[in-house]
Design a binder for these strands. Structure first.
Lengths: 227, 227
DNA sequence: ACCCATATTAAGAAATTGTTAAGTTAGTTT
DNA sequence: AAACTAACTTAACAATTTCTTAATATGGGT
């Protein structure tokens, strides 16, 4: 799973820390959400179902421990990993934290590189819990990248790589016209040189297999997938 | 999963510590194995396939870091969680540890109650991963990781390691297409370099043994186990 | 009707995978 | 440690699928 597919919720009452950690995680490609307090965190967690929740122990009102216990009450969050952020020296009983359902402790201040390694290690274990498969539905066509299959009206259609990628591209933005250049760049790669009619041939095969009505030609401009 | 079903491998060069931690874990119901050095640890790990390996960082000859890297070379151990035991003050770079494939750091000396909480937290993550389930049924195939055996229609089939790991990987997500890169990374380990046709040959043997209908080729993309 | 961009077709090129057998390596037994 | 065995890898070639080309057809717009 790529970092981009992971959601991380950051909870700390200090905006600076939120900003700092958030920046480092975002730069790595993770999707980062932030909350300034426990109450807000619980709401946001239930909304975005993060894979990892990083929780500051010391917070006004609802502290990390309490927030953790609260989070653990919701079954939809049972697969989320919870890590505590604790200032070195705060001799918080880690015991209580683990009992509350925490998975890890991270000491502050923390070097970005170490934080990233740690996050990676934590998420490595969560991967197979996997959520929604990577599928896209457009019109009567469903594209399942994981299985590398197309479904049209419950019927399974297997496409060769180029045709699959072409269809996936067009369907990624229904009704948008993709120029030949865009199609080449995305499906073939920028440095590959092939003849002019190659795209047409693939389009033809696609139309043959998934129906002529979806893929439309815009003369002089390109092709589009119409819903 | 009850503690009794978990296997933990303890690795430390000091018998006292081995004894102390071992006693606490055993009392809790875990099945505990012990090794006094890295080399022995790797052998034992491959034999008992522990769910959790607790590794002292400071050891003569082969230190924790090196042992960890060695352990990670074996695909059958890729599901084991590895935690480092580090004396407080030893300013070992945790970074190197995580990069070597560690999942957690535990500081010595550690209170038994905290250790147990920590172990529980680590194993909690391994449980739902599904890999900890020693048997998986997919289609007409049952995979028994513990005994390293495959069953097809009640019939027992014994597979060599590479074939077993390959099948286990493909069957871990039926219908998902695994790219050759993914397969290499999981079955061979990311730093191993072997020829192009190696996977094909193993696939062929698998098809020979468990039937041609299950393992499908997606040309230019990879292989999948279809149910 | 003419032009131009696209459609269609089939052939053969190119790329990928399948198969086989022999060569290596690793693990076990004696 | 030598001999044996099973597992794994390599390499050459075959088979297959996919991709591209090129030649020709079609069809809307001026």
């Amino acid at each position: 799973m790529k970092p981009g597919n992971y959601r991380i919720l950051l909870v700390d009452d200090e905006p600076d820390i939120l900003e700092f950690i958030g920046y480092n995680l975002t730069r790595e490609g993770y999707t980062v959400h932030k909350s300034l307090n426990g109450k807000e965190a619980v709401e946001k967690a239930r909304e975005v179902l993060p894979h990892l929740i990083i929780l500051d122990v010391m917070m006004p009102e609802m502290d990390g421990m309490e927030t953790c216990r609260e989070l653990r009450r919701f079954p939809e969050l049972s697969h989320s990993i919870i890590a505590f952020l604790t200032a070195r020296g705060e001799d918080y009983s880690q015991l209580a934290g683990f009992e509350a359902g925490a998975d890890d402790y991270i000491a502050k201040p923390i070097k970005p590189s170490l934080l990233l390694s740690r996050v990676k290690a934590l998420l490595r274990r969560s991967a197979p819990a996997g959520d929604a498969a990577e599928r896209v539905q457009v019109g009567s066509i469903m594209i399942d990248r994981e299985r590398y299959l197309i479904f049209k009206n419950e019927q399974e259609i297997s496409l060769p790589k180029k045709e699959f990628e072409l269809l996936a591209l067009l369907a990624s933005k229904p009704n948008k016209v993709f120029s030949r250049e865009e199609i080449f760049a995305s499906v073939w790669g920028s440095n590959v040189v092939v003849g002019d009619r190659t795209i047409d041939v693939h389009v033809r095969k696609l139309r043959e297999k998934i129906g002529i009505e979806n893929i439309k030609t815009v003369k002089g401009v390109g092709y589009k997938f119409e819903v």
